[in-house]
């Protein structure tokens, strides 16, 4: 009789899986960045909605890098590191642009009437609301580093046998 280990062993690595990819700081990179983090989120065992929230948060953060840190396209790269651990997924986004501290941006007013609705600041709202942890630091001489963490709900560990 051959021993076949439970699928969970493959789906939930005991040592962290870390992959870094670099993308050109352009808006047409967003779809490829989305594909990368979606794949890693699925590998991390996040449920369908959690995968969507990660893709959204990363998309918003990368749009901010291009718009605010680089203040234009093709100024520098965006390095995206995904780290799968036993309890969830950590994403680190690094750029070489000007300091852009998301904590300095006030939350948008989401209750005003249509005419007064702000059209900016929504992206950070999604990042703050949908990620379990958000950490920002500026490293002089290097650039911005934004760390996002999404926890895998414990209830999902058992049924986590999805493969791609």
């Amino acid at each position: 009789m051959t021993y076949s280990p439970p699928l969970e062993i493959f789906d939930r690595p005991t040592t962290p899986l870390i992959i870094t990819r670099s993308f050109p700081g352009r808006y047409d990179s967003l779809a490829s960045i989305g594909d990368f983090v979606r794949g890693m989120s699925e590998k991390a065992g996040l449920d369908t909605f959690a995968v969507y929230t990660v893709e959204m948060a990363v998309d918003e953060a990368c749009s901010n890098i291009i718009e605010h840190a680089y203040q234009g396209e093709d100024i520098g790269p965006i390095a995206c590191t995904c780290k799968i651990s036993n309890d969830g997924l950590t994403i680190i986004l690094e750029d070489e642009g000007r300091p852009f501290d998301p904590n300095a941006v006030a939350p948008p007013d989401l209750t005003s009437n249509l005419e007064d609705r702000p059209t900016h600041g929504l992206g950070l709202h999604f990042i703050r609301q949908w990620m379990d942890e958000v950490h920002y630091e500026f490293q002089p001489g290097r650039g911005n580093r934004l760390t996002l963490y999404k926890k895998r709900p414990p209830a999902l560990k058992k049924n986590n046998t999805r493969k791609r």
Binding site: Y52, E55, M56, D59, E60, S63, L122, G123
Partner: peptide, 19 residues
């Protein structure tokens, strides 16, 4: 499949014009 805040902005700006 996916809509970021940039898409939501397009919706709200159009809604302002239409209404």
């Amino acid at each position: 499949d996916f809509m970021s805040s940039a898409g939501l902005r397009a919706l709200i700006n159009t809604q302002k014009v239409c209404k």
